[in-house]
Amino acid sequence: MIELKNVTKVFHAGTANERRALDGVNLHLFPGDFVTVIGSNGAGKSTMLNAIAGVWPIDEGSIVLGGKEISHLPEHRRAPMLGRVFQDPMTGTAADMQILENLALAARRGKRRGLKWHYTPIEREDYRELLNMLGLGLEDRLTAKVGLLSGGQRQALTLLMATLVQPQLLLLDEHTAALDPKTAQKVLEITDRIVSENSLTTLMVTHNMNDAIRHGNRLIMMDSGRVIFDCSGEEKKKLTVEDLMEKFSSASGGSGGSLADDRALLS
């Protein structure tokens, strides 16, 4: 489905701040894979998602999605193939626009935007039904400005928008990190449902190791811009947080630099 080959990205090349954010990443996802991505801060998790989405061009390597080389395409040309949800609930939606308008914009991802009215009466009813399934009471607030919604509601809406046009790959970039634990669980439930109903190929970055173990069929761990651990199927089901902690500490050379931060997240 998607294949990353030797993807490399260096920020601030040639300066004192030079940082190899992605250092020859290789990754192959099969159709229907739901992969959780973990790693300490600066490991390259979000950078990998941004490389796929085309936020900036990569320095080396290739990205093939659905048999098509996409690494030279600008962000908006890759968008038709990708669904994206971001860490900041503000990023995925237009705050000054109505819920209805945001959904209508998303429904036209990858289609020509012409001089027809920006939504049709049929769409309106469809959206009401879809929102109803979220169970957040948004179905009666179609014309409310998105800026009035809570973070959790905005993330759920962004999920809906990301999958309104079926994407070849769904990119979830710590999309529950900014939410309170209860809301985060609710959004993860919605995520699981949407992913399984549409059998979406998914990459989900998370800081929470429990979530990484509990969700998806495959787990990868990143460190210093590389994939250092990859497991799936039965092996993943048996994983424990302790196993992951061990991997972390051996990866960071026993120094445990970022380990303390990650341990804090487990409680």
Binding site: A79, R84, T91, G92, A94, A95, D96, R109, G110
Partner: peptide
Amino acid sequence: SNPNMSKAQG
């Protein structure tokens, strides 16, 4: 309103 969201929506 939101250039990043717009790019993500193609």
